[in-house]
Design a protein around this nucleic acid. Structure first.
Lengths: 129, 129
DNA sequence: TAGGGATTTTGACATTTGGCGAAAAATATG
DNA sequence: CATATTTTTCGCCAAATGTCAAAATCCCTA
């Protein structure tokens, strides 16, 4: 899992921006990166240079090296979050997912799991018919 | 782009290469970066992208982080990788939640985060009224 | 449903990056 | 010295980045 897919990276950025309830324009202002460029990055048409990446870290509440690792610029070995997520049953928890969830109170985290189980049962019953 | 560090950076690279007694050609081979490009980087005519920088780290016996910091891509604060505390905004990821989620494929994990952000925006709009 | 502001996307363009091959400069070797 | 051989620098080109302005979309409310 050296370099995550570049398309995925844009998705992560967009999700994080939405999570912080920022518009492209607002993020542009905070990060000093043009909104149009940000938009292209989010939908995977452009890939941010290290310079741009660094400007994005703070407004999006990422550690710099975290963001660099997500972008595939740094090997995730140098990322603290990666170590922190243990591998259960052969699978592993995505570092970004871990980060986002851990920002929520535990009740919310549990609720998310509840919703997931509901969705799974819905999906199961749908494929049966 | 007259960042005085940039010229210095090339010097550092050159010094390190000489230190390892490598020619441009040899370093090019080891790093998979063309010798001409390396030459320009060393004398400050070009500035290496993160991709190139990463290829240079190992042959020149630098830590990736270190090299990125030298290039000004990472603030030197990020160099101290001693931060093994996850502690995102003072919160932790519930172990049970981590366990359940990590049993799902990453796409599903990401989707869960997406749903969470939707719910948060719903909650926000509800409290507004 | 039309108008108007905010937000996002697209088009056009300048700048930078990086590779290839040849010229130039060093460095050996006879 | 003369000349191979290696090493560095230069010229040129293709691809990627990033910005500004205009166009398209979305979201309201009258």
């Amino acid at each position: 899992m050296v370099s995550s897919n570049r398309g995925d990276f844009g998705e992560i950025i967009r999700q994080q921006r939405v999570m912080m309830s920022l518009t492209l324009g607002e993020l542009a202002k905070k990060s000093l990166v043009s909104a149009s460029h940000l938009g292209r990055i989010e939908r995977g048409e452009r890939f941010p240079s290290a310079r741009i990446l660094r400007r994005l870290a703070k407004p999006l509440d990422f550690e710099e090296n975290e963001l660099f690792a997500l972008a595939g610029y740094l090997s995730s070995r140098s990322l603290s979050v990666a170590e922190e997520s243990p591998a259960y049953a052969g699978r592993r928890l995505d570092p970004y997912v871990a980060k986002v969830l851990s920002q929520e109170p535990v009740e919310v985290q549990r609720a998310v799991i509840g919703i997931l189980s509901i969705l799974k049962s819905i999906a199961t019953s749908m494929t049966k018919e």
